[in-house]
Design a protein around this nucleic acid. Structure first.
Length: 521
DNA sequence: TGTCATT
């Protein structure tokens, strides 16, 4: 139990967080004394360190980062050091002399902002010899203050070395009013807190989550046990979330998913023009494709090919092995048109997986479904016309065709090419452009995201589908969203599916209400 | 009527 009298921390400094545009990341020296002043003010320099022999001309190369290819070798057990509290006007060449006195440097890299190139005031340093790192840490950490800095230099193993992640917690579902101090107080009973950071946006507003780093894994674990789900903060939509923070690898995956979402493209080579990244990204995307295919597996079980004459009994979908839900087109179609055949189906099937894998199937142009709908000779999409029924038929047979061309075994090897078994990567929820997003109500209870997507795939490329779940019961709230990549698909889906009867209910399929407008339909 | 937010 950390006492409030404790005034020292193991870590007085942490690297500037690249995406924190405001100085919100605080390190406490004690719960009663959260720093509120921004750095660079008022604190007298007690340890001006004036002996840096800089600037010292180097050997002409701009970057002093020394790479293995350039000759230096490092010990197998070398330690990567984090160097903090570096004046922003000091580059590698300026810093090198300071650190070289403790041994030969293998690599020294000043951290720069990925986009602006701005000096982040810290660096990573790896000596060739492990011993050099230890000497440097002992001699410099918290011992000297570089010119212009208010706090002493930090020299300590980088987080990546100490696997600091396994004692760092992600805290979610905080009240947005809660500060670092509030979070500190909440977590203090379970161990010594080294770092406590509330995540904030550029405007300084809390994102409702935080990172808390304990001094040990056990402390972090006990905080999880005690606090996760233990309470619901006022204004939060769910109970407190306390879990281990993402590892570096998980963070990378998350970033890539965000990129995919932002750019709306599925070819990582285009999204990530960095040579070293694209291979890994490609693997990730393949993994995602494999996972998608695997999640479709439920359809691969005895999928009954329903006869065309039984369009009103679409329970053959066999969703999740649950009893079939009778599905019926709107009244007026008690006897289906004779021209409904599954032979028309393949041309309309456009699995989104095509986009993920890049594997061309029936429609290599990437936009087949829309055209298919239109070229099937459907001048209108009245739900009372036989052509609409045709569309519906295609919609549901499409589900079956779709799964049929994706036997799970086809994609498994792709997953196996990855170093780790595929994990479940959640489909990113993504709104499409204006006019492309549908709100669907009165879904069958057993429909999940996947089933929803299957139902709307025949009308175009579905970029996301989301069924809302009740958090408490984990039951569907029977409504959801589907986003297409173009408005025509959305309109086709509305025309065909609005009013579609499933069991005792009829689907309500509308354009999603825009955020600003409050007009009910 | 897109819940949950990962330095």
């Amino acid at each position: 139990m950390a006492r409030s009298t404790q005034t020292e921390t193991r870590s007085q400094q942490h690297p500037p967080q690249p995406h924190h545009l405001v100085p919100t990341s605080l390190v406490f020296s004690g719960p009663g004394a959260p720093p509120t002043q921004p750095p660079l003010l008022l604190i007298p320099h007690q340890h001006q360190y004036a002996q840096i022999p800089f600037p010292k001309p180097m050997n002409g190369s701009e970057s002093i980062s020394i790479h293995p290819e350039n000759g230096t070798m490092k010990d197998q057990d070398a330690i990567k050091l984090f160097i903090g509290q570096i004046p922003r006007n000091l580059e590698e060449k300026d810093l090198k002399p300071l650190f070289e006195q403790f041994g030969k440097i293998h690599e020294l890299t000043v951290l720069k902002d990925r986009y602006t190139g701005m000096h982040k005031g810290c660096a990573f340093l790896t000596y060739c010899a492990r011993e050099s790192a230890i000497k440097a840490q002992n001699a410099l950490h918290e011992q000297k203050t570089l010119p212009g800095m208010t706090r002493p230099i930090q020299v300590k193993p980088a987080d990546s070395e100490s696997r600091g992640e396994d004692r760092k917690l992600f805290v979610g579902m905080l009240n947005k009013q809660q500060t670092e101090e509030d979070v500190y107080r909440l977590f203090e009973p379970y161990g010594v807190i080294e770092e406590c950071t509330v995540l904030r946006g550029p405007d300084g507003n809390s994102k409702g989550c935080a990172f808390v780093k304990y001094s040990t894994h056990a402390e972090a674990q006990s905080a999880i046990s005690a606090l996760h789900g233990s309470q619901t903060m006022p204004g939060a939509s769910s109970s407190l979330v306390v879990k281990f923070a993402d590892t570096d690898k998980e963070r990378t995956i998350r970033r890539m998913q965000q990129m995919v979402g932002q750019f709306g493209i599925f070819n990582p080579a285009v999204a990530l023009p960095f040579g070293t990244y694209s291979t890994y990204a490609h693997a990730l995307m393949q993994q995602q494709a494999a996972i998608m295919a695997a999640s479709h597996g439920s359809y691969l079980t005895p999928s009954v090919a329903f006869p065309a004459t039984q369009i009103h009994q679409m329970g053959a979908l066999n969703i999740n092995g649950l009893p079939p839900t009778p599905m019926t087109p709107v009244s007026g179609l008690s006897s289906p048109p004779a021209n409904i055949t599954t032979s028309a189906v393949p041309s309309i099937v456009t699995p989104i997986v095509n986009s993920f894998t890049g594997i061309p199937h029936h429609q290599p142009n990437g936009h087949p479904a829309v055209e298919a709908v239109y070229t099937n000779g459907l001048p209108t999409y009245s739900t009372h016309s036989p052509t609409a029924a045709d569309t519906l038929q295609q919609a549901f047979t499409g589900v079956q065709q779709y799964t049929a061309i994706y036997p799970a075994t086809t994609l498994t090897p792709i997953g196996q090419t990855l170093p780790q078994p595929p994990q479940v990567i959640q489909q990113q929820q993504r709104e499409g452009p204006e006019g492309c997003n549908l709100f669907i109500y009165h879904l069958p209870q057993e429909f999940g995201d996947n089933e929803l997507m299957q139902m709307f795939l025949p009308f175009g490329t579905v970029i996301s589908s989301k069924v809302f779940m009740d958090r408490a019961t984990n039951q569907s709230k029977c409504f959801g969203f589907v986003s297409f990549d173009n408005p025509a698909s959305a309109q086709a889906a509305i025309q065909a599916m609005n009013g579609f009867q499933i069991g005792m209910k009829r689907l309500k399929v509308q354009l999603k209400r825009p955020k600003d407008a409050s007009r009910p339909y």
